[in-house]
Design a protein around this nucleic acid. Structure first.
Lengths: 146, 146
DNA sequence: TCCTTGACGATACTTTGTCTCAGTAATACT
DNA sequence: AGTATTACTGAGACAAAGTATCGTCAAGGA
């Protein structure tokens, strides 16, 4: 269930950025992504739009928290549309890149609890789960373990 | 309280790697680091050792889990000696780079709890806290908020 | 419509590594 | 100890993911 390009553009406009042709095209490209994507993928799909513009627009969208930047263990950064507007975390399938958002109230409680054990004050945190999603597990079962 | 270079070297030897001069020097440089450091810092301190060798040695040490790679929000990767040999997480001071290791059994329980809510199977996770450490907070208090 | 200023594309540069390759040296073997 | 193997090394090219620069252009308010 892809998101609307207008959702992305509205956020940019709200933050006082101009709605330009290239930004509309980047937003449209991102909006088609059901799951995670890389910046270079978007560049590849929009040959008429400069690389710098694609990266600039992605950065604006990350700053606006409409898309999230994921840090996979392999090091490759991927982006994913944020379906939830509230604080949340991600479970990323290491095989297919599917992203599941989650928010567990217990997690946040634990963050607070762990914080009280630490010296210093927590200003941010990152929690990411790396998973093998259901359909990838099913695929493995069919073709046998490699 | 810096660690012993020999601790690092012993791990390499245990894993069947050779104890070479450059590796000893990289281990010695890392061992002096009380807190986190970057790969380029090590390169700068060891002009006689090739950059590739520094990175190769760091990678070996990360693979051996004697040092840990941190992913700060800014994107800059830092490394930190692992004081604990068991599974743990890190709280990194965003100002001075001080690293505090922590392991809260509650955290691990939550990981399991969150996992049961997710479709798919968790294969790994990353939990990092970004903090302002006590001495940096004290420094701020003295010089006033900027 | 005009004007200001943010945004654009092209391209050079930066950061953080990794790869290649010929030469070197740490271990194993005898 | 001497030799053989082969992992390791340094230099430098290459790669991925961005960022900075700069002259040009156009979005959107007056």
């Amino acid at each position: 269930m892809p998101m609307e390009p207008n959702d992305l553009l509205a956020v940019l406009e709200d933050r006082g950025h101009r709605l330009t042709g290239p930004r509309r095209r980047v937003a449209a490209a991102i909006a088609t992504k059901a799951e995670s994507f890389t910046a270079e993928e978007v560049c590849g799909e929009l040959p008429g739009v400069g690389r710098a513009t694609v990266y600039r627009t992605i950065r604006l969208l990350v700053d606006s928290e409409v898309i999230c930047k994921l840090a996979l263990p392999g090091g490759e950064p991927r982006y994913t549309p944020a379906r939830a507007t509230y604080h949340h975390h991600h479970a990323v399938c290491l095989r297919c890149g599917a992203v599941e958002e989650f928010r567990d109230s217990t997690v946040e409680r634990v963050v607070k609890a762990a914080g009280s054990d630490l010296t210093g004050q927590i200003v941010a945190h990152r929690i990411e789960f790396y998973v093998l999603c259901r359909s990838c597990m099913a695929g493995d079962a069919v073709e046998g373990k490699q």
